[in-house]
Amino acid sequence: MSNLPFWIVDVFAETKYAGNQLAVFTNAGDLSTAEMQQIAKEINFSETTFIRSSELRDGGYDVRIFTPATELPFAGHPTLGTAFVLQQSIIQQPVDQLILNLQVGQIPVTLNYRDRVPNMLRMRQNSPIFGENLAAEQVAPALGLAVDAIDSRFPIQEVSTGVPFVIVPLKTLTALQQIKVDVDRLLALVEPLQAKMVFVFCPETRNPANHFSARMFAYAVGIPEDPATGSANGCFAGYLVQHRYLGTAAIDVRVEQGYEIGRPSLLLLQAQAVNDGIEVLVGGQVVKIAQGQFV
């Protein structure tokens, strides 16, 4: 595992040291699964990615994604951050789109530039799949909230665009900020579910330019709280359309996340109902922080 080049970037960040941290290893073809897991645990970010080859396969680049505890078939901020690094370190010229080959399939990412550096990236996620509904009485105690903090007009529901999340609607920003997770209850809640991660949102924001505030908890996969979760926000975008939360079959919204853990993040969501499901786009900015080598 010697002389492995890597980048560190902040994803869904408008400035350095915000958003969600990501380490990207750019020449990881010789690493075993166990070695990649060891490195992800050492880095200890919510996710670390490994570009397996600089050569295209079926038009895309093979990439694997790991949390400190496990491999993921898909994740949002690793997709955008890895696309940024691929363009800057391997392709090294402007391209309008590139494709990542992930376990969930091929995920296209579009890129817009400023001074030849991507300043906005958007990924098209798989059409969301809607699963089981949960009762507020099940969920509220795990979040340390009263049952009436949950907005009963909309369901608590499992949703997946590749990785499933429990989507929980709250009424107010105050309730979102007051969440105190009971870890044992949260783990017991998700144990029988396909979804092991919980995404909580409300329609009140700190910044009046934004539309929603959110938090995401994933103790079951080694992430107590995530500062910016692209995969969960893709599920959320589908949820907003599916349940006509805003009264429309198409949405274009800004979501703030990460404030409670000192990593303010901004995610741009677009979604619309189409004949065969819901089309979902999740976008944001990526900021380069560092380059180096594992020795």
Rank of each mutant, 00 (worst) to 15 (best):
F130N: 00
G238W: 01
V190G: 09
P203M: 12
A140I: 00
S53G: 08
Q106D: 04
T15Y: 15
K41E: 11
Y245K: 07
V95K: 10
L143N: 00
I156M: 07
E14W: 13
V280E: 02
D96G: 14
P164R: 02
V286N: 02
I65H: 03
Q177R: 13
V139E: 00
P208H: 14
S2D: 13
P155Y: 09
V109M: 02
L186S: 13
I278T: 05
N233Q: 06
A140F: 03
L240H: 00
F236K: 06
I107H: 01
V139G: 04
L4F: 11
A237W: 00
S46W: 06
E42D: 11
R122G: 00
V190T: 13
V11D: 08
D182Y: 14
D10W: 08
S127Y: 03
V190I: 14
P94M: 07
P169I: 05
R124W: 01
R254V: 15
E204I: 09
P94D: 11
I156W: 08
Y259P: 07
Q93W: 12
G131D: 05
V190F: 09
N44H: 08
L281D: 09
N126F: 00
I223M: 00
N126L: 08
Q291L: 13
E158W: 04
V274G: 03
F74A: 00
A69T: 13
D252V: 06
V63Q: 00
T70E: 10
F165G: 01
V241Q: 03
I223S: 01
G59M: 05
Q257M: 10
L176R: 01
T110D: 02
Q285S: 10
S127F: 07
A136N: 12
A220V: 05
E204Y: 05
G238Y: 03
F12D: 04
E204S: 04
I107L: 01
V255I: 14
E204G: 07
G81S: 06
R206I: 15
L80I: 06
P164C: 00
W7L: 13
L145I: 02
D58N: 14
V198M: 12
F74H: 01
G230K: 03
E158G: 06
G284S: 03
L72K: 06
A249H: 15
L269D: 02
E35Y: 03
S32V: 09
V190A: 10
Q38V: 11
R116H: 15
G277C: 02
E35C: 09
A271N: 05
I43A: 10
I65P: 03
R263A: 07
P208Q: 10
I129M: 05
R153I: 12
N207V: 12
I90H: 06
D30V: 12
N20L: 09
N133G: 12
K288D: 15
I278C: 04
Q291C: 14
A136G: 04
A250H: 13
G59Q: 09
V287P: 13
I289C: 09
L4T: 13
F12E: 07
A218I: 00
V166T: 13
A75G: 03
T205Q: 02
Q291A: 15
A142R: 05
Y239H: 07
Q38R: 11
L281S: 10
P141T: 05
Q38P: 04
M197V: 11
S32N: 13
E191C: 11
T49H: 08
A83S: 06
M1I: 14
V241I: 07
L170D: 02
R52F: 10
Y17N: 15
